[in-house]
Simulated scan of single mutants.
Amino acid sequence: MKMIDAHIHLDQYKDKEVELILENSNWLEALLTVSTNLESCKRNLQLSKKYQLIKAAFGFHPEQCPPAEEEFCKLMQWMGQHQSEMAAVGEVGLPYYLRMSKKVSPSQNDQFVEYLETFITKAKKWDKPIILHAVYDDAPIVCDLLEKYSVSKAHFHWFKGDENTISRMIENGYYISVTPEIVYKEKIQKLVQRYPLEQIMIETDGPWPFEGPFTGKMTHPKMMMESISMLAKIKTLSEIKVAERVLANTKRFYRI
């Protein structure tokens, strides 16, 4: 079964770990490596030039302090210069978890909303998909911005949210991707049951560690095989059929 990891932070792995991931990788079609800041973008660009399988996305992860305006402008300028080498804009979004733990102030959150609007307009201008970190209460805000600029090529990675937002995302044609958490988390299984298979991708979000059968293991794209197995059970289809469908979804979305 050929697979694509639709969301991984390869720049956060050590060089030897990247080599290990790519060793005997004839079953891998591609790896979408997302960025967290400008240095991360540069590292992912280097990896994409070194390995044909790697497709780099450029952005600024929201679960950190927002960049100063000068730093943000420098990032946007760099992204504009490298848009031909960019598979997508991402990872971008809003700092839900930091906000809930009161580590991001309301004004900083507002700044992220402004930055996200810029990322969305650039994705539209550059004709690139956008990879989003937008969960729970933040998802409707992001949907508002996507609708405002008529952006439909939106990928909500590791999504969690309410029924109304899920219905809205499905209707708008937005994609989601599920991590190995689908194997042991009922809320993710329920989401997948609700979401059309034609709008689902798989990911690892590595090197983020997982629990259940993956406890203590380095997050590796091979874990997606377990995700496909659970996805097939939920959709009552064969693993081969689900793998083929998910692969086709991802190739179409990212123009691979």
Rank of each mutant, 00 (worst) to 15 (best):
Y96E: 13
K125G: 02
S177I: 01
T215L: 12
M86A: 01
I131E: 08
E163A: 14
Q46A: 15
A154M: 08
T165F: 05
M3G: 02
V34W: 08
N24T: 03
C65K: 15
L20F: 07
E163V: 11
N172C: 08
F72E: 06
A6F: 04
P140M: 09
D110Q: 10
N109I: 12
M225P: 00
H155R: 09
H220E: 05
L28S: 09
Y51D: 07
V34N: 12
H133A: 05
E19I: 06
T250E: 03
L75N: 08
V113L: 11
V113C: 04
R255D: 15
V34C: 11
I188G: 01
L75G: 11
H157K: 07
P95L: 06
K42N: 14
V178L: 12
D11Y: 08
Q199R: 10
T215G: 00
T33H: 06
K251C: 11
K128P: 12
L146T: 00
H9K: 03
R245H: 13
S101K: 14
K153H: 13
F253K: 03
I170K: 04
R43F: 11
Y184F: 15
E71G: 05
E244V: 00
L247C: 00
A87I: 02
Y136A: 13
E71L: 03
A123F: 06
V113I: 13
F210N: 05
Q52I: 04
H61Q: 11
A88G: 06
K124C: 09
E226I: 00
D137K: 11
Y254N: 07
K148R: 03
Y174I: 04
